[in-house]
């Protein structure tokens, strides 16, 4: 008998520390498989942020650097500029990259840094107890917006991939989801493309992944997937939001 599906070499043998049903694990698997398929595990340096995504260094078998809150892309910029032959990626949650790290998200793209950033968007601050994030949907209840996010006082949710796609230095921007087997496979294609863009040295590549937080949403893993489909997908447009001319020929 032949193994046709198993744990990727890009992952360590450490069980994920995430809550049951948390889609962080799916996204980490996809990245690990892409690193293995492109044969770049040994040449990759990941940068982990603060939040649930901050555990990533325990789970990937490539090298990792831990950054201060929101600064993963700044640290990634430094690594890539000093070691241009290495593949550098950041793995950040929305509470990190779209809140305290917004300036880096914008300026890394504007400078066209040749790194890859993966954003995990579950519309909430997961690790700290489910507080309202910049990506929280209108009317969505969180521990700091118990009556639902009020646009009048809290403003509108930020659609970061759309924002980044407007900048010249970002050559590949995609928004994907991991709610269904079909979307998971599409997410993998987008992540792979984002790493290939970096291998070719074309510019900044950004992939936003719609994700769940069953614990802080107060839903079962299965209901979380349904909630994501019904509520997040209409707000955060899916698809390849920007594919620069030079990326199309990859």
């Amino acid at each position: 008998m032949e193994k046709i599906f198993g744990r990727s070499k890009g992952l360590t043998d450490v069980p994920f520390s995430f809550c049951p049903g948390c889609t962080h694990g799916i996204i980490m698997r996809l990245i690990a498989e892409v690193l293995e398929e492109l044969d770049i595990i040994e040449d990759t340096i990941g940068v982990s942020p603060v939040g649930c995504a901050g555990f990533s260094q325990d789970f990937f078998s490539c090298d990792f650097v831990g950054a201060a809150h929101g600064r993963a892309q700044a640290v990634g910029t430094g690594i890539k500029r000093s070691l241009p032959d290495k593949i550098v990626f950041t793995y950040q949650g929305d509470g990190d990259i779209a809140a305290i790290g917004t300036q880096h998200a914008i300026h890394t793209a504007a400078r066209g840094e040749k790194i890859t950033s993966i954003m995990v968007n579950n519309a909430i601050f997961g690790m700290t107890g489910g507080q309202m994030a910049p990506t929280t949907l209108e009317g969505m209840k969180t521990s700091t917006s118990p009556y639902g996010r009020n646009i009048g006082t809290n403003g509108y949710p930020i659609d970061l991939p759309k924002l980044v796609a407007n900048l010249e230095g970002a050559v590949y921007v995609a928004s994907v989801s991991v709610d269904s087997p079909k979307n998971i496979n599409q997410a993998k294609k987008a992540i792979k493309k984002a790493f290939q863009v970096q291998q070719a040295g074309l510019g900044f590549a950004f992939v936003s992944v719609l994700s769940t937080c069953p614990t802080n949403w107060g839903l079962t893993p299965s209901d979380s997937m349904k909630w994501l489909r019904e509520n997040m997908m209409p707000v955060y447009e899916l698809g390849e939001l920007k594919v620069a001319e030079e990326v199309k020929s990859l």
Binding site: F5, G6, G25, P181, N185
Partner: peptide, 19 residues
Amino acid sequence: IGCKICATVCPDVAIEIYK
């Protein structure tokens, strides 16, 4: 039937498929 759908959605990469 070895369709791998269970392994695709598993968030903890806890499923192996043999064929």
